[in-house]
Design a protein around this nucleic acid. Structure first.
Length: 853
RNA sequence: GGGCGGUUAGCUCAGUUGGCUAGAGCGUUUCUUUGACGUAGAAGAGGUCAUAGGUUCGAAUCCUAUACCGCCCACCA
């Protein structure tokens, strides 16, 4: 291969990925002495496409993976694919709908195999996209969330929970989406503030007492009135004390319901009387439990009124029923008013349908014992969080967690391995013969539960399922995922991981925020502001996307996507490409085959120092998950140090062994951040062996600190001269004369090269003329500019003298403060003194310059 | 109602346990076709770190209040 003028990522990326994959570079080494480093990918939807959030996830995880691989760890990055139960089901149901079919046209087994086929036809895209993003994951251990080993583990866990009494079947209020015909866990419900109305309705007392003939209740849901089985007042409420236990006539029905006393009724709110509808409201359900109330279901799973609501209302939608109930109450003179109200209403996160709390028999996990263990582990700091504050947020969530409904009424998922006796609905047994809808056991016939598991129940067991073939990799090193699934996923992995293995599932958690659009708005299909990562890869390259995504981003914070960062990153790739091109060119044109690594100039000591520093810095930053800063560090090294100063100087020396060695070091350090371009370069360079992906993280080279410091001074001198040249007429046409300065004497050529001055002559002190440069430690440097130009230019220098004077004043004030001198660390005070001295000298020099002319 | 973030250059954001002249990318001004790169090089301009107090020798950083913006949680009839 040869280096073209510009790096064109699309020409190399697929080939490079194939090279890695073919050579088993992604597989963990079987080195017993090395440390294990394990990351499990949050499994993307098997039949979906990756979005920009995946771009970020892969960027972060792959940087860690590649870094640890270079460091020599047994690095294992485990990919996954999610059957995405509900998501996929929604897509498939839409397809059925477009064919004029519904789920009720098929058996569950039919539907399951239909979706299975559908998913497998669609599958593969996502995996190709992961490759395009450069994920260096071990494809041979890809786990699909419906793989047998997943199902087996999930069944074992379910059975264990069941045997220990932590699973129970209960008829409780569940969050039900009447459109999708399934229940949800509390966490899956999206609450929104909405404008509604609060109606006042009169419930007449059967026997008026204590001067009270009727009770006014307030409700936002009059249509549930027919499901009322009590009205409640606060036991401490003096107004109603005497009528507790009396009955009221329930309007629109012929039922009489009791007035009960319960803390739930807030005396301050409305009239202080609340209607109790245990079958349709979570609070009322709890009141009902306390008072043993009857539960009447007036809304069905289809979202329509049931017969129990009365013949007049049966079959109406809730909205229609509300209108009719209000109208009927109005007719009977029982509607006593309405007022606008803003209240929070639960919605289906997928279709936005209002979630209906409905009574349904479901499987629940008693989470208390699991959550307690998890909270203990968190409090004992067995898992480190990035950002740290999310740990407390999770603890608070776990403390208040209610029992977890794990049943879903959708066919696409892991079937719940439970069967019910056809003759005894209370007789449930655990059995894994889920491929049969009826089984025989002990001479009795059992029918399969048609429901499937909540996907979080299975993915909550992900870390130990995926590492089951190499158990020494559990707990995994870090769980990197999106901050918005802290509760449903991270929390559940910790609970179930502890429950199943006794150990936490991961040592570290790194949570990333959302990638917002360029304006800082959440991306969504409906808003049309979605950025497709694969398009960015096609346009700017995979490395540019990766570097651009991690730039200026910190843990847990939502942040806008920045195309200018992507462009800047693309430019960096081009920069390192051209650096390599230049070095390859120098190598090709060098006559002698120098082998020994030898340092020949101050700039070489300096660049070695800078590389060493950056090496340490990157390691430290990555240990702390500071990706953006690590990216900045390598960017700065390559661009502002290696290219602008070191390479520029090497055009004079061409120290081939050092050029080769430093370039290799830089390529290795850049590799985690820009895997494709570094590998492409590695494969193109004439002298490199093997692949950079499996190279060894660079050892630090030795250098002379004094010489490195010298070069720093040269940089100051050069920059100073350039600055003058920039503002002088005639630009760089004036020689830089000096006397009695060894550093300049030894580097005349270099200074001339950097400044483009016509010459750097050594002169006698008495011949000094022109502009006297004011550089600390180098008092005898002159720009030989003609007297007339000099005279004019002097005015410009006054500004510098003024600002220097101000700086000196600040330092003097500080040192004049006795408590500063007494209390601040000695080094700091000494440094301040030093500085003051240097600046004072500089100021004197500059003033002397005025005398000269 | 409870909790968590944020407010730093024109824009998007960094800024580790308080410490020297507060950084980056983009944008912007001027100059430059030098043996790689114009997706470039060189030199600049640009910030009273939201506000008000406090702690400290020293505060963008710690504390208290205020304002505005964003997010999460919750059983608001």
């Amino acid at each position: 291969m040869k280096f073209s003028k510009a790096y064109e990522p699309d020409q190399y990326e697929p080939e490079i990925y194939a090279l890695w994959e073919k050579s088993d570079a992604f597989k963990p080494r079987a080195d017993k002495k090395a440390e294990n480093y394990t990351i499990v990918m949050p499994p993307p939807n098997a039949n979906g496409n990756l979005h920009i959030g995946h771009g970020l996830t892969i960027a972060l995880e792959d940087i860690l993976t590649r870094y640890h691989r270079l460091k020599g760890d047994n690095t294992w990055y485990i990919p996954g694919a999610d059957h995405a139960g509900f998501e996929t089901w929604v897509v498939y149901e839409r397809k059925l709908d477009s064919e004029g079919k519904t789920r009720f046209d098929y058996s569950r087994d039919d539907l399951y195999s239909q979706v299975w086929n559908f998913v497998h036809e669609q599958r593969g895209n996502m995996e190709l996209q992961l490759r395009a993003l450069g994920a260096s994951c071990d494809w041979s251990s890809l786990t699909f969330t419906l793989d047998q080993k997943v199902v087996d583990t999930v069944y074992n866990t379910f059975e264990k929970l069941w045997k220990q009494g932590l699973i129970y079947r209960g008829k409780k209020l569940v969050n039900y989406c009447t459109k999708h015909q399934t229940a949800f866990a509390d966490i899956e419900v999206t609450h929104k503030d909405e404008k509604g109305k609060l109606w006042q309705i009169a419930y007449p007392l059967v026997t008026p007492k204590a001067g009270i003939t009727e009770l006014i209740v307030s409700t936002t849901r009059p249509e549930t009135l027919m499901g009322d089985t009590a009205v409640a007042v606060n036991p401490k409420d003096e107004r109603y004390k005497n009528i507790i236990g009396q009955k009221v006539k329930l309007p629109l029905t012929d039922r009489k319901i009791e007035i009960i006393a319960d803390e739930h009724a807030d005396p301050e709110y409305g009239t202080g009387v609340v209607k109790i509808t245990p079958a349709h409201d979570q609070n009322d359900y709890e009141v009902g439990q306390r008072h043993n109330l009857e539960m009447i279901t007036v809304i069905g799973f289809d979202g329509k009124m049931t017969l129990a609501a009365g013949a007049n209302y049966e079959g109406l939608t809730t909205t229609e029923a509300r209108q009719k109930v209000l109208a009927d109450l109005e007719d009977q003179g029982l509607l006593r008013g309405e007022e606008p109200i803003v209240h929070s209403v639960g919605h289906c996160y997928k279709c936005d349908t209002v979630i209906e709390p409905l009574l349904k028999e479901q499987w629940f996990v008693n989470v208390k014992p699991l959550a307690t263990e998890a909270i203990n582990a968190l409090k004992e700091n067995r898992i480190k969080f990035h950002p740290e504050n999310k740990k407390r947020v999770l603890i608070d969530y776990l403390k208040n967690l209610k029992d977890w409904n794990i049943s879903r009424q959708i066919p696409w998922g892991i079937p719940i391995p439970a069967f019910v006796n056809i003759d005894d609905p209370t007789d449930w047994i655990f059995d894994t013969r889920v491929d049969q809808s009826e089984i025989e056991k002990n001479g009795k016939t059992y029918r399969r539960d048609e429901d499937t598991f909540d996907t979080w129940f299975s993915s909550g067991q992900w870390p130990y399922i995926t590492t089951s073939d190499r158990k020494q990799h559990y707990p995994i090193s870090v769980m990197e995922t999106a901050a918005d699934i802290l509760f449903p996923w991270v929390g559940r992995m910790i609970m179930l991981g502890l429950y199943n293995t006794g150990d936490v599932p991961f040592k570290d958690v790194y949570l990333h925020g959302l990638v917002l659009d360029e304006k800082g708005i959440k991306m969504s299909k409906s808003k049309g502001n979605v950025i497709n990562p694969i398009e960015i890869v096609a346009k700017y390259g995979s490395d540019a996307l990766r570097l651009g995504l991690i730039a200026s981003r910190s843990a847990g914070v939502n942040q806008a996507f920045s195309s200018s960062k992507v462009v800047a990153s693309r430019n960096l790739c081009n920069k390192i490409w051209n650096i390599s091109r230049l070095i390859q060119d120098m190598v090709d044109n060098s006559e002698t085959e120098a082998v020994e690594l030898e340092i020949k100039s101050n700039g070489e000591d300096w660049i070695i120092r800078e590389i060493n520093r950056t090496n340490k810095e990157i390691q430290k930053l990555l240990e702390h998950y500071r990706f953006a800063e690590a990216g900045d560090a390598i960017y700065d090294l390559i661009w502002n140090k290696y290219a602008d100063w070191f390479l520029e100087g090497e055009k004079l020396w061409k120290n081939i062994p050092l050029l080769k060695s430093t370039l290799e070091q830089i390529l290795i350090m850049l590799h985690p951040f820009a895997p494709f371009v570094t590998e492409t370069i590695w494969q193109t360079l004439s002298w490199t062996d093997g692949m950079v992906i499996t190279a060894k993280w660079p050892q630090e080279l030795k250098f002379s600190p004094a010489k490195a410091k010298n070069f720093e001074e040269l940089i100051t001198i050069v920059t100073n001269v350039r600055s003058h040249f920039q503002s002088l007429p005639g630009a760089n046409s004036y020689p830089i004369a000096f006397y009695d300065d060894k550093l300049i004497y030894d580097n005349q050529l270099l200074i001339q090269h950097y400044t483009k001055a016509p010459g750097v002559p050594q002169i006698k002190p008495e011949d000094a003329k022109g502009l006297h440069l004011a550089i600390a430690g180098h008092p005898n440097i002159y720009l030989e500019i003609p007297a007339d130009i000099h005279a004019k230019y002097k005015a410009n220098l006054e500004n510098r003298i003024m600002s220097l004077g101000r700086e000196i004043e600040v330092l003097e004030t500080r040192l004049r403060n006795p408590s500063y001198v007494k209390k601040a660390p000695k080094e700091l005070v000494d440094e301040t003194k030093n500085q003051l001295e240097t600046k004072q000298k500089l100021l004197d020099d500059m003033k002397a310059e005025f005398e000269l002319a």
